[in-house]
């Protein structure tokens, strides 16, 4: 998943003609939107090649960090596509995603990006045409808003510290099927 976002940054810019070609990332639920994308393909429907689809098991799995990360890596617009309300394969995943997207929009606004660059769509599995329509809609929106202010800027250096394991753990790590302490020997 993270690799699919990361590849955004390495891609060559535009077509060389200088025209702005937005990069749009779509996090698609495997049960509905992704299937709809498949259907759109089978129906030979045309939708902008600017959309990069990231398949997720459920839209509820999408974290706010992923959405921000996509923008950091140079996406101009991002959307999450989940099932219709009440149709989630995991019952409430899409409701969760709605909340996550609303929260991420607030964070984007706080940072200074237009919250409209992020959206949530309900796309049922049978709606191939709707998938294509949403893809066009989001690409047009990105075109209208113009390139993201983060695009083509030097990425900020960052890493996650990995702390060494505790040299004196309170108990030795549990090992399944083995005695872990001498006191347990009978």
């Amino acid at each position: 998943m993270k690799d699919s976002i990361a590849c955004l940054g390495t891609e060559t810019e535009g077509t060389g003609s200088g025209a702005f070609e937005p990069k749009v990332v779509a996090f698609c639920c495997t049960y509905c939107a992704y299937t709809a994308a498949d259907l759109a393909g089978a129906m030979r429907l045309e939708y902008p090649p600017n959309v990069r689809v990231v398949q997720v098991l459920c839209s509820g799995k999408v974290e706010a960090e992923w959405l921000l990360r996509a923008f950091e890596e140079g996406a101009d617009a991002v959307y999450v596509a989940g099932c219709a309300l009440g149709d989630c394969h995991f019952l409430e995943g899409n409701r969760q995603a709605l909340r996550t997207v609303a929260y991420a929009k607030r964070l984007l606004a706080e940072v200074g990006l237009e919250p409209e660059r992020l959206e949530f769509f309900h796309i049922p599995a049978s709606a191939g045409t709707l998938f294509a329509q949403r893809a066009r809609e989001m690409t047009d929106r990105a075109r209208r808003l113009g390139p993201s202010p983060l695009r083509s800027k030097q990425a900020v250096e960052s890493r996650k510290l990995v702390l060494p394991p505790d040299p004196h753990p309170p108990l030795p790590p549990a090992q399944l099927g083995r005695r872990i302490r001498e006191s347990e020997e009978l």
Binding site: E72, P149, L150, A155, L161
Partner: peptide
Amino acid sequence: ASELRMRAQASGQRRRIDQV
């Protein structure tokens, strides 16, 4: 960290943001 990175990136500020 992501928000701070984006701010720094947008303003072109030299900054390294690590997390733990």
